[in-house]
């Protein structure tokens, strides 16, 4: 019974991993760019949620939305002010841009919020539910379900809507897309907005269920790398499966081996993937 509870908890958390990882994979797929600051976007989403609750007394819908909007705006700004100028430049500039941004955001957060762990005050999502004999915190269940829904929605947006086909047109061939009347810069700014927005909501969802400090950005950023590596670069659906798998692996290894070993198992998986299947389980080379 405990094992089932561990498994369900792992899947629910994995769904949130899937949501923020889909943001990372989106940018990789669109512009062959690895965003080292993605985990920091998640972390900022958590603090936005906290500020909305503490200052405005907003409920889960309010702070979830606020995190999404704030991070969407940040993503667009980061693209317009920074990424746009480096993305076709030398490799060093590409890597350093988002790597430097990660440090800037992480240590600014340390400076403002201190290194102490915080958690959201009681929200309407407090309490537990009993499902089929196992007990789960309401917040975790809601977070997991919302995350799965949003990840699938993002996948559908990319594959079924005209907006999605415009985005993909830019990814395939910038010049050709321009000739079709699509503005690549706008589409890529939108991609960054969507990517950071997904990270922001994921952060707000995580904040309902777990305490955090500014350093979680690094952990989530690396988790997103592992997820994307497993799911295949550029595939949102791939990161959904991979996120669930990683949530599961984490939960089970924490249960069997102890909490500190779960990271080792996950990063070990990453190194193994690197050797065995660098293009990811479902990705193309």
């Amino acid at each position: 019974m405990v094992l089932i509870q561990v498994i369900v908890g792992g899947l629910l958390l994995g769904a949130v991993y899937a949501l923020f990882s889909s943001g990372l994979t989106l940018i990789w797929g669109m512009m062959n760019f690895i965003n080292f600051a993605h985990g920091e976007f998640v972390m900022l989403g958590m603090y936005v949620a906290l500020l909305v609750v503490v200052w405005l007394g907003g409920g889960p819908a309010a702070f979830g939305l606020a995190a999404a909007i704030a991070l969407f705006a940040l993503g667009v700004a980061v693209y317009a002010l920074l990424i746009r100028h480096v993305v076709r430049g030398p490799m060093l500039a590409q890597i350093l841009s988002s790597f430097g941004l990660a440090l800037l955001l992480r240590y600014t957060a340390f400076w403002i919020f201190s290194a102490n762990f915080v958690s959201l005050p009681q929200t309407s999502l407090a309490g537990t539910v009993a499902v089929g004999g196992i007990y789960l915190p309401v917040a975790q269940v809601v977070a997991g379900l919302v995350a799965v829904t949003l990840t699938i929605a993002l996948h559908l947006l990319l594959t079924r809507s005209t907006l999605g086909s415009r985005l993909l047109a830019v990814a395939e061939d910038r010049t050709a897309a321009m000739l079709m009347g699509i503005r690549p810069d706008r589409m890529q700014a939108l991609t960054w907005g969507l990517s950071a927005g997904a990270a922001g909501i994921a952060g707000a969802l995580l904040a309902t269920a777990y305490p955090w400090s500014p350093s979680v950005g690094e952990t989530f950023g690396l988790l997103a790398f592992v997820t994307v590596a497993l799911g295949g670069f550029g595939s949102v659906l791939g990161s959904l499966y991979a996120g669930l798998i990683i949530g599961l692996i984490e939960a089970i290894s924490a249960y069997w081996l102890g909490a500190i070993y779960k990271d080792i198992v996950v990063y070990g998986l990453f190194v193994a993937l690197l050797w065995l299947r660098p293009q990811g389980l479902m990705g193309k080379a």
Binding site: G100, R106, Y107, F110
Partner: peptide, 20 residues
């Protein structure tokens, strides 16, 4: 030291953006 790394992050971003 925390402030140093805020500064480092800022410098790295500026190098990447303006003077790779």
């Amino acid at each position: 030291s925390g402030l140093t790394f805020v500064l480092y992050g800022g410098i790295i971003v500026l190098i990447a953006r303006f003077e790779p």
